[in-house]
Design a protein around this nucleic acid. Structure first.
Lengths: 246, 246
DNA sequence: CGACTAATTGAGTCGCTTCAATAAGCGTGG
DNA sequence: CCACGCTTATTGAAGCGACTCAATTAGTCG
């Protein structure tokens, strides 16, 4: 109900070019634009609700859309022909989704929790971006950051043990949620996991059973608490950092 | 001797702003620039020889340099504190090296074979790039391509078997070398590997022994030939593609 | 409270690694 | 040109960490 009201308000806001009330305005790529230009871009986009589990873009399809995440968490994933899945990225509010200036999307984009994104047709976005260097500059910096993050993850996937992977994952989740939530400075010690065990396994290149065993052993060691299926409390961050092993 | 002569010639060429004879001019990011601007950028850079094994940039250090690869092959790598290494990227002629607009380099850059790069101080490059949107646009497209490539590699590291990894690696190497060499259209069936077995293992997240065993079994199956330590001949590409498993 | 789904735990297997020995390349000097 | 020595790669045997399959328990929602 609350959410529906928000949605209506923001859809109208976008269509009249008023991005001024957007909660991620100052952190998303839009922050590169002058108010006038932002309004112009805003007219091309529209707010879209993406309920948990809904896939916004499919792997291998024509990349017709790009978007900014306003609220929620989404996964980027690819799979082998026989169905093994790997999550290659997790995006949070103010993150950018999609492949501008490209033909095909190399991965699916699926909401992990109920989310809201600011959606643009790719063609219109490309045209606009090409005419606004400051926007492209910000997009470039984002892409370079994502590239560094992806490469750090390659070290985890290629060389780390199950324990190290799970510890690294929990720390990463903790700091990303803190950044995105911005309601606190420094990483969070208590939060809800936006992923279930299978999805954590798909991020880490492990099985659900191995993830579960590692979580249990971390709990047994007094490093974390698991109050609910999806809730996590970090008791000993230093220990967790040591276990992450890099 | 031959190489020394080339080097001298090209150093002079760069210093006088004449990039016109550069062999990667049409494919590197420089191609985005008008001749005048290219000359201007050329004045900021200098040709640098990087012998096999030499490291150009160290992980964690201040990222003071960026560069274009003119000739050779280099690896990007990170390691854990206890010395496990993961190669997170391999770059070829016309590829771009470094993190513009960033403080620190997240990975080392090391020559796998004797190489030559066109080196820029990062500050000067940043200033120039910021003033030339077409250059940044090309940089953005490159970064997005690299990001897609890194994410495809994450699927390999997280979910593929040793056989699939080695098959995928050989195919990737074959097409990247063909692209970079441009002396032939379509992927190469016969080439020299720029990496030794340990480095292949570091790309694939495996051990040297496992890589060796997989290579031997591919040879036994009649899929490849191994005429020398570093030479490879693909006999049955279709079979190799099937084994790569995606 | 009960039913369903998700997560945990256990037992056994398999694939990759580890450790160790052998063989093949390759450059050097006789 | 071939023998020698060094490095790199291959092969073998044993071990172990993560996976698979199966059973149990714990959350969550109607």
């Amino acid at each position: 109900m609350q959410q529906a009201a928000n949605q209506t308000a923001e859809r109208r806001a976008a269509s009249t070019g008023h991005c001024d009330s957007c909660v991620v305005r100052s952190k998303a790529i839009c922050a590169a634009l002058e108010p006038d230009d932002r309004q112009l871009l805003g007219r091309e986009g529209r707010i879209q609700v993406v309920p948990r589990g809904r896939t916004l873009v499919w792997e291998g399809e024509d990349a017709m859309l790009v978007a900014n995440v306003i609220e929620g968490v989404l996964k980027l994933s690819t799979s082998t022909s026989d169905g093994r899945e790997q999550i290659v990225g997790v995006v949070y509010p103010s993150d950018f989704i999609g492949r501008p200036f490209g033909e095909r999307s190399q991965h699916s984009v699926t909401a992990l929790v109920d989310s809201r994104v600011c959606l643009f047709p790719r063609a219109a976005f490309d045209r606009f971006a090409h005419a606004h260097p400051e926007l492209e500059h910000r997009l470039l910096n984002r892409a370079l950051d994502e590239l560094d993050r992806a490469r750090r993850w390659m070290l985890l996937l290629g060389r780390k043990s199950a324990t190290e992977r799970v510890a690294s994952f929990l720390l990463e989740m903790s700091s990303r949620l803190a950044e995105a939530g911005c309601d606190s400075q420094g990483p969070l010690d208590s939060f809800e996991l936006p992923l279930d065990r299978q999805q954590i396994a798909d991020v880490l290149g492990l099985t659900i059973e191995t993830v579960s065993r590692q979580m249990s052993s971390l709990r047994a060691a007094g490093v974390i608490e698991l109050p609910g299926r999806r809730s996590l409390h970090i008791l000993d961050r230093q220990h967790l950092i040591a276990l992450a092993g890099d």
